[in-house]
């Protein structure tokens, strides 16, 4: 039995290390303590709300978030704005609707059920406005990058003067965490860029952490219920396993053989 466990864990270790081993060009990402990691990990509500502020004031001018709706902002497990706040946020955006009975498209203030308004009409428009580079949709961005939250967090703080041996074209910037070190996005954050309502000091580090937390939530909106359910499920399974183990011992004691 013990050996079975060992083999099992070795196999799992090999599998998991395999899937992580692509980062041959390894760089150490910056670390911070994420509240949503671990068995009971939960989002830091205030950080999510600040993160939304950073997203909407800074990132959203180029990056869409097409899978999110304004209602999500008020849902449990997220930033948990009050419904009134979420409605006010939605109403602050102009949404194109229609066609109306005259066959005309029209604009109206956003509603909770609307998806986040996109900064550009289409990919081509986004590329045209950004020197040919398409700012990726941010809905599942942290899951779509190898290092996940640590990578995004580091990237936001990874802008540096390019070393002498690296030449950069116009509109290309040096970032020590970017794959190949060249990035088409200028450093998006600078100290004091946003003014937090709760008085938190808006350093680059703080904003990076807040907006990355927000992006983790946008990619995994059910993370909190997943962790809660997971804990219950595993505790339940362990108790049941123990009970079944003793029943098994009891039943097998009838024959002269070991289990």
């Amino acid at each position: 039995m013990k050996n079975l466990f060992k083999l099992f864990s070795i196999i799992i270790l090999i599998i998991t290390s395999n899937s992580n081993s692509f980062a041959a060009e390894k760089v150490e990402y910056l670390k911070t303590d994420w509240s949503f990691k671990g068995l009971f990990g939960k989002f830091d509500r205030a950080s999510l709300q600040r993160g939304y502020q950073v997203y909407t004031e800074v990132c959203a001018s180029c990056h869409s978030m097409k899978y999110l709706s304004y209602r999500n902002l008020a849902e449990p497990g997220g930033p948990e704005f009050s419904e009134a706040q979420a409605k006010a946020i939605a109403a602050s955006f102009e949404v194109t609707d229609g066609p109306n009975s005259d066959g005309e498209m029209f604009t109206r203030p956003g509603k909770l059920s609307d998806k986040f308004v996109m900064p550009y009409d289409n990919v081509k428009a986004a590329q045209a406005a950004n020197g040919g580079a398409y700012p990726p949709d941010m809905s599942v961005l942290v899951k779509a990058r190898g290092g996940g939250v640590d990578y995004i967090y580091s990237l936001l703080q990874g802008y540096e003067e390019a070393p002498n041996n690296v030449s950069l074209d116009d509109g290309v910037y040096y970032n020590k965490y970017m794959y190949g070190n060249k990035i088409r996005m200028a450093a998006p954050l600078s100290d004091g860029l946003v003014e937090y309502g709760d008085g938190t000091n808006a350093t680059v580090e703080q904003m990076s952490k807040d907006v990355t937390t927000f992006l983790m939530w946008s990619a995994e909106p059910h993370l909190e219920s997943r962790h809660q359910m997971g804990f219950k499920a595993i505790v339940y399974l362990i108790i049941l396993t123990v009970l079944v183990y003793f029943s098994m011992k009891r039943i097998w004691s009838r024959v002269e053989s070991e289990v």
Partner: peptide, 18 residues
């Protein structure tokens, strides 16, 4: 199932590719 549940609830994307 305990191992299975661990992956599903705590590392659901670790076996996939980003």
């Amino acid at each position: 199932m305990i191992v299975f549940a661990f992956f599903v609830f705590y590392a659901p994307n670790i076996l996939g590719h980003a």
